[in-house]
Structure formats: C-alpha cells, structure tokens
Amino acid sequence: MNDLLALADRHDDWEANFGFAARLAVHLGARLTGLNIYPTPAVPSGLYGAADTFAMILESVRKAETDAYAAGDAFIAWAKAQGVHAAAWQVAEGNPWTVLQRLGNRHDLLVMARDAGVADSHVELGQILLHCGLPLLLLPPAWKGPAQFDCIALAWNGTVEALRAIHAAQPLLQRARRIVILRGELRDTYAEIGWLPPFDLNAYLAFHGVQAEMQGIAESGDAAGPALLEAAHLQRADLLVMGGYGRSRFSEWMLGGATRHLLGQSTLPLLLRH
C-alpha cells in the first residue's frame, strides 16, 4: 500500500475529511492523493424556465470546480504538515464510481467514510466497491480512531472475494498485534471446479509471517452481517476485512447479505475487496 487515494465530498476541513487517510499514509509510509468529485450538471426538460434553471445549475457546478482546483495547494501543504512524505490533489467531474473506475488503476487503496446523512448510502457505496478496481477502506461516519490497527478480524467463508480481501490487507496484517479469523459457513465445495487444489488459510497466513486465531460464526444469509460485526466487536477488533458480494451480486443486492448490511451499518472500519 504505497499509494493511497482518499475521497471526500468537501474540502473545507482537511482534518475532518482527510485526517484518518493522512495518518494512515504516515503509518504506511505511503503517498496520499486527495480526491474531490463534483457532479455533472443535469439538463432539466419540460419545465417553464428550464434554460434559466440550467444556467444557474451550470454556474454552481463551475464554481464548485473552480473552488476544488483552488484547494489543491492547501491540501498538499496540510498533508505534508501532517508528516505525509508525498501528496497530490485530484479533481474530477461525474459520478464517483465512474471516476474511480479510471483513477483506481493508479492507486493501491481507496479510503473514504460513510456519510451518515445519506439515506440508502449502501447503494452508492456498493457501486463504488464494484467498480473502483482496488481495495476499499470504509470508515464509519466521523470516525476518530487511530490509523494503527492492533487487532484485525478476517471474515472467511472460502470465497475468492474473501481471499482477495485478505491478500489486499497484508500490509496491515503485518503491522497488527493480533489477527482473528471469523470463520463462517464455507461455500459449497461442489460449486468449485473439482481439480482446484485445497486451500488452507492458516498455512497461507503463516507463510506470510502472520499467526491467527480462529472463531466460528454460525449465522449465514441475512444474519451473517450483524453476526460478523458483533463477533468483531467481541474480539475487540478495530478493523474487519471481508470480501465484497461473495455470492452473486444481484442476489445479495436484492435480497440482502453481509456486504449490503455492513456497507450501510458497520460501526467498525471495513477493508473490502470485490
């Protein structure tokens, strides 16, 4: 994790919007890029005075663009004052998942916080997770915790997505004091190709110099999300690592599931990878 990308909607309070990402960048010795995305103006139609309304919208968007670009020098100066060795500032127009689909290829980790004021925030966060192309470190609203994760919980159900998330978390696992595997119901082995070799998570972690404890989780389906969160809290974990959309994305999105629940409700930082 040598290059962090931090997304926030505002640039009027660097500490509130980017403070955690800056501390994490210092902890990892990583470069930090701050990102501000402003919306593409929507063209109203079929309304009296639509042209005037659109002109006002366009003016507001262009002001947001100008202000965002003007904030770049202040962000870089602030980040360096926090101890970040290299910092940059990016501004883009559009919806976040489309922008991140391109920017994600340049970075190792996306850091952002869930917005408590947005209803159904899991919808946009789900789109970001699916399209950003890199691990997502999602913080609860107004999170003030330390950037050092002493105890990390790993949600494990044997899926490709779960292993991908654990692999992405390696730089954090190497620095943690304690690792706990929260082992849920493993995916049906008959759904896998028969000649694939068996996988031992403990052996994989040990190969990377990581020793882990094991804790079973009985619940599955809609109950898995709350159960994972409760178990992580009981283990005093300060980070939960999990795969995103372990079963089909459509079924989890429509019917519920661990990813959907935790995207909208987690009270712990999450590291997710689709």
Rank of each mutant, 00 (worst) to 15 (best):
A68T: 05
H107W: 09
L47C: 01
P198A: 11
L139F: 07
I37F: 05
Q265P: 00
A6Y: 03
A79P: 01
S248T: 15
G221C: 09
L100M: 06
G216E: 11
A22K: 00
L129W: 07
D3G: 02
K63I: 13
Y190G: 04
A168Q: 09
F250R: 14
W14L: 10
Q170W: 13
R178N: 10
Y38S: 08
D222S: 12
M56H: 13
D120S: 12
H233E: 14
I57L: 15
G256Y: 06
A77H: 11
A71I: 05
H131S: 13
G184D: 03
I193F: 11
N202R: 10
I76L: 09
P39R: 11
L263F: 10
Q211D: 14
G46N: 06
Q235C: 12
M242R: 03
P140N: 12
P135L: 06
L272V: 15
P269T: 10
M56N: 04
M242H: 03
Q101L: 09
Q265H: 15
T40E: 15
R62Y: 07
T267R: 09
I37K: 02
A74W: 03
A147Q: 03
G145H: 10
H27V: 00
W253D: 01
C132V: 13
L270M: 13
A51F: 12
L201N: 02
L271I: 08
A55Q: 14
G133F: 08
L7M: 09
A203R: 12
E161V: 05
H274M: 06
L58K: 14
Y245L: 13
W78E: 07
A68V: 06
A176F: 04
F20M: 05
L136A: 03
W78C: 11
A176I: 04
F20V: 03
H85D: 12
R236L: 12
H122G: 07
P171R: 07
W89C: 10
M56Y: 10
F18G: 04
A68C: 11
A153Y: 01
W89D: 10
A86L: 05
W143F: 15
H122T: 11
V241R: 02
L129H: 04
V43C: 04
H208W: 14
G194E: 14
R114A: 05
L28F: 04
G257T: 04
H167S: 13
G221R: 07
A30W: 02
L130M: 13
A87V: 11
A22Y: 05
L239E: 00
A88V: 05
A25R: 02
D3K: 15
E124H: 08
N157Y: 02
N17E: 15
E252D: 04
T66P: 00
Q211E: 15
A74F: 08
L173K: 00
E93T: 12
L173F: 05
L138W: 02
F18V: 09
A155T: 04
S266A: 15
Q215G: 05
G94A: 11
P135R: 04
G225T: 09
L263Y: 08
I76N: 06
A206S: 13
